[in-house]
């Protein structure tokens, strides 16, 4: 009995913060952040955005940085439209994007992909910059960013550079960002009819077996298809895109694109699905995503029903 009491007391006096330890640095300006990163020894400093991925990695000992650089004070929590392009600061919580009506209307695929990330409370912290910077193969956002041809604005010691997201992503936890570079913002060049679809074993709290993102961009080659749920990261399927030659491809073209996507995707088998099941899923989902995207296109004026 007394040992039980002692045990309870021990639980109630559990020391806190003993699992992991690091020093948190909270620079006040982007310049200071870049300077701190440049001065840190290689691999010793991790960049913290919303923390919904990094902190779990630290807890589970997949990462053990000595220092963590917080982006909390960076002036990057903004969202603005420049004409029809959308500029999103890298540390803006996903929840803010989700609650924005114009984002939902003009970039429906992006809105859907955001809604599929975790829960509202998680989205209150998670960021676009973090999704790109961490390059998780499990991310539901990355295929959509690739399909929408999002640009990444990167700030570093030698100034600012801008690249398509597809060139920035490399593999899990790896991007082509230099050690002292930070993601400042993401730029979506134009509003676009777009769709994001996923398949999971459980609808919530699970990683997608397959994610399919489709978008029709105003600039040629117009159609873009990207897949998630594959290793080492989400990728674009240009071979399947090439089949689609008009804004409203025929059913045959859609079917051919879906088959091409299924043939080209390099899946692996894991505990969530076998390689062949994923392939079957892709064929069905690409066809559905294309059809949904077509349905989201503004109707040509002549096809509109005359108003009474």
């Amino acid at each position: 009995m007394s040992s039980l009491v002692a045990h309870r007391k021990a639980i109630n006096r559990r020391p806190v913060g003993v699992r992991v330890s690091f020093q948190l640095v909270q620079p006040a300006t982007p310049e200071e952040a870049v300077r701190l990163l440049a001065g840190a020894s290689a691999g010793q400093m991790s960049v913290l955005g919303g923390g919904t991925d990094l902190l779990i990695d630290i807890d589970q000992a997949r990462a053990s940085p000595r220092q963590v650089l917080s982006l909390r004070k960076m002036p990057w929590r903004y969202l603005r439209w420049e004409g029809s392009s959308l500029v999103v600061g890298s540390t803006l919580p996903l929840r803010t994007l989700e609650l924005d009506r114009r984002v939902q209307q003009q970039l429906p695929g992006l809105w859907e992909a955001i809604r599929d990330v975790g829960s509202p409370a998680l989205r209150a912290r998670a960021t676009l910059g973090g999704n790109v910077g961490r390059c998780s193969p499990a991310s539901d956002l990355l295929p959509m960013l690739i399909a929408l041809d999002a640009r990444v604005r990167i700030l570093g010691p030698s100034g600012v550079r801008e690249h398509p997201v597809d060139l920035v992503l490399q593999e899990s936890r790896k991007t082509n960002l230099g050690p002292a570079e930070l993601i400042e913002s993401l730029i979506f060049p134009s509003a676009a009819p777009s769709t994001y679809m996923w398949q999971r074993v459980q609808p919530v709290n699970d990683i997608s077996q397959v994610g399919v993102a489709t978008a029709y961009l105003p600039d040629a080659p117009h159609w873009r298809i990207a897949l998630g749920g594959l290793q080492p990261r989400a990728r674009r399927l240009s071979e399947a895109e090439a089949v689609l030659r008009s804004a409203r491809p025929t059913h045959l073209e859609q079917e051919l694109a879906a088959q091409e996507a299924a043939r080209r995707a390099e899946f692996v088998s894991d505990k969530r699905a076998t390689e062949s099941y994923r392939r079957r899923l892709v064929a069905v989902m690409v066809r559905r995503a294309l059809q949904t995207t077509i349905d989201r296109m503004p109707r040509p004026a002549a096809a509109r029903k005359p108003s009474r």
Binding site: G51, A121, A124
Partner: peptide
């Protein structure tokens, strides 16, 4: 705003 306190550093 509802937030997950397990994934938030107190200093943040």
């Amino acid at each position: 705003e509802p937030t997950l306190s397990c994934l938030l550093l107190s200093r943040e």
